[in-house]
Design a protein around this nucleic acid. Sequence first.
DNA 1: AGGTATTCACATGAAACTATTCTCTGAGTTAGG
DNA 2: TAACTCAGAGAATAGTTTCATGTGAATACCTGT
Length: 401
Amino acid sequence: MVEKDTETFFEDFLRKKSVFSDKKALQASYIPETVLHREIQIKQVANVLAPSLKGDKTSNTFVYGKTGTGKTLTVKHTTQKLASVAEKEKLPLKVIYVNCKLKRSADTEYRLIAQLARELGKEIPPTGLPTEEVYRSFFKALNKQNQNYVIILDEIDQLINKMGDNALYNLTRISEEDTTSQISLIGISNDIMFVDGLDPRVRSSLSEEEIVFPPYNALQIQSILKQRAEFAFNKGVLGQGVIEKCAAYAARDHGDARRAMELLRVAGEVADRKNTKTITLEDIDEAEEKIDRDRIMDIATTQPKQYQVVLYSIISLQRGRESLFTGEVYGVYKSLCSKINISTLTQRRVSDIISEFDMMGVVNAKVISKGRYGRTREISLEIPEATLQKTKSILEDSIHI
DNA sequence: AGGTATTCACATGAAACTATTCTCTGAGTTAGG
DNA sequence: TAACTCAGAGAATAGTTTCATGTGAATACCTGT
């Protein structure tokens, strides 16, 4: 009986009409044929890179703007075009894109250079080699293939604050050196201030050109959403004012188009699950809530045990209080650790964990001074009431309390 | 009263340590000629 | 003698601990009126 039900469920699912026709168009990695509202920036990038077609040295470029302002998209789009022209004309030009933020991919000096060397067809083991060695084989590959390279370093700020500017310094130096192959660097960052902390030599070399991406306004986000929705959804599924509402939501805090797209996509999923033919305004509200909830649940389930214990301490201490302090949390954390028989971390470490939770947006931790009574973090949960109980039981399960 | 000095309770930084994963090297071992 | 095995040295990295130093403002402690 159950078997039958499951089977029909799948059959129904298959036949069910979805509001989506191509969900990919709403994903962050999707690169549309035309990029809206970034004409100026595209032009700038193109101007900078054009000389590379003729084998000339191009300026290193620094691109910055807040998240969801289309930096990566624009650069990728433009370099794709560049590469295709180069290919058509049989010019020796190669574009390499590296995301420095991806864990275990290019977030250290070794891994960055290894990644680049791999792009040039070298086999580099994930560890074991001296960094020097990796540099050497990267250089060798570079000089062997008489080609020009455009190297895009996305989220470059992450790289710097993890490992300093050593690698960047080396890279900019190669780009200045007169070897058979030219390399031009494009650094993408969403933190404008991060250049200030750079070695002056690196800074001047990297930001020979600077391109700024201002946030989109609500209208621009609307037209972007419309463009994507065109591909993503079937005709006529969008209810009145849906796009507008998504745009408004994203514009509310600094015009993040990525957020708007995610919202629209999740709203579509919500509508699908409810088996309705159109996406309504309520679906958006629901989607907004769902995104928030999923994020917290995800964090609660995937974080390492120690983090979970810290979070649990905060949650159980929060009951009926407005805010807590680091010392209190640590106290609860310590007794919890001995209760469930897990090694206790130092306060130093727990302090770091708390500030990581702050970054993730699970808690709000502000450093305050209580005068005579010291300086500490004022911690309060950012988890909505409705999700709290569920989060708590997830944590309880996970740490075997 | 007004001004200065203390003091608390952590924050923040840097360095060092630990454990794990991985490569490379060279000594010792094996098998075949 | 060539091929193979395997232990040991050396690297990179993540996650911590240890040590050192910093810090904002509520109080304590003056001082002169």
